[in-house]
Design a protein around this nucleic acid. Structure first.
Lengths: 207, 207
DNA sequence: GTCTATAAATAGATAGAC
DNA sequence: GTCTATCTATTTATAGAC
């Protein structure tokens, strides 16, 4: 009952070279992002990624050599992430907390970066490489983005506490899917978390 | 509440055989806690736990049957966790934020509960059972402990945001070991995070 | 209670045909 | 570029001797 596989019903590139940039490599990467984001590094087998991409397992190795290397490619953080936070800085000082929360949630709504963020968050606790990438983002990138507005003796600590709060929010909302924060609107979260973050911009012991 | 029989140290049975409640079972559990806390569920093999306990692999199965069952035992959260947060409630309202932070960090300093908390936090992003335990603690237990002091229309959301902040702090300090929050003193953290949490107890739009 | 030995499944990775 | 077939290592788990 399976119809004859009709060997490649023509599509010859007579004479011409370059079968064109093949999309298989990109499809494998996309499938890997989905799988890693859903299950993390260990629980995702190369075979599963291959199935999700509709290709053979050995093709994954052909393109990315090792699983670890593929994971690093899947994890690659777009440059726009730190920029998005920095973009929340300009404006009135009283609204800083809210704008930072909205900028952060805006990244999670951006499908070109949110899979990588989910991979990072879901794997950081176990995988040392994901942990390093998250550390870099939560510390250095945040510090650079907020250097002008978080000042004072304890600025270093306060920047990381801002990162921690946003990390906790993301864990609750996107990883644990904890209610009611998982299905709350951006407005509702910004209205509550914004003022909390604001205390780091206006430290109570500032002269 | 399965309440492990916690081998009473003494309780001799004169003449009888019974080499007494053997400590091997407890040693395996302790080794499992250490390993799971360090590496998470997937990366911890039964063999590694057995080695850490100084016993054979098959003994682990003999006592705990399956790896998953052992993990659940290792994860078992002491009842005192919610109580510790509730214990921070009495006192002047202005100091609530700080007291909650100190209560939370006090739990992490308690060696009878911190391994379980680390297991939970490190595995929750990947392991559904650990995730469920963490959800239960971050939502229900927190809500019960703070019901009297977090009030108003958005109380449900604000309780979970408090949980999220504490979760983010624990991730940064104990899992990622992110500086400077990893080596900051309890006083320093309480001084900065306390006022941020305080905004949830005194919502700006309260009548 | 504690060990040896091993079953049974699955993992990542490679070789080579087409 | 894509597939089939397979190697090797490691996993959880069990059976059975002592």
């Amino acid at each position: 009952m399976t119809a004859e596989p009709v060997t490649a019903p023509d599509q010859r590139h007579a004479g011409g070279r370059r079968p064109g940039e093949n999309t298989t490599r990109a499809e494998i990467l996309a499938a890997a992002r989905t799988c890693f984001a859903e299950r993390g590094y260990d629980a995702t087998s190369v075979r599963r990624i291959a199935d999700a991409a509709g290709v053979d397992q050995s093709l994954v190795h052909h393109f990315y050599k090792t699983k670890e290397n593929l994971f690093l490619s899947a994890l690659e953080v777009p440059v726009k992430m730190p920029d998005a936070i920095a973009g929340a800085v300009p404006g009135d000082r009283a609204g800083l907390g809210e704008r930072v929360v909205r900028a952060h949630l805006g990244l999670w709504a951006d499908l070109s970066v949110s899979p990588q963020m989910l991979i990072m968050l879901r794997s950081a606790a176990i995988n040392s490489q994901a942990g390093e990438v998250l550390r870099e983002f939560a510390a250095e990138s945040m510090r650079a983005a907020l250097a002008d507005v978080v000042t004072g003796e304890t600025a270093g600590l306060r920047v990381v506490l801002i990162s921690s709060s946003l990390m906790g929010l993301a864990m609750a909302r996107f990883v644990l899917e904890l209610e009611p924060v998982a299905s709350a609107s951006v407005d509702e979260i910004a209205a509550e978390l914004g003022p909390a973050l604001q205390t780091y911009f206006d430290p109570p012991d500032e002269p």
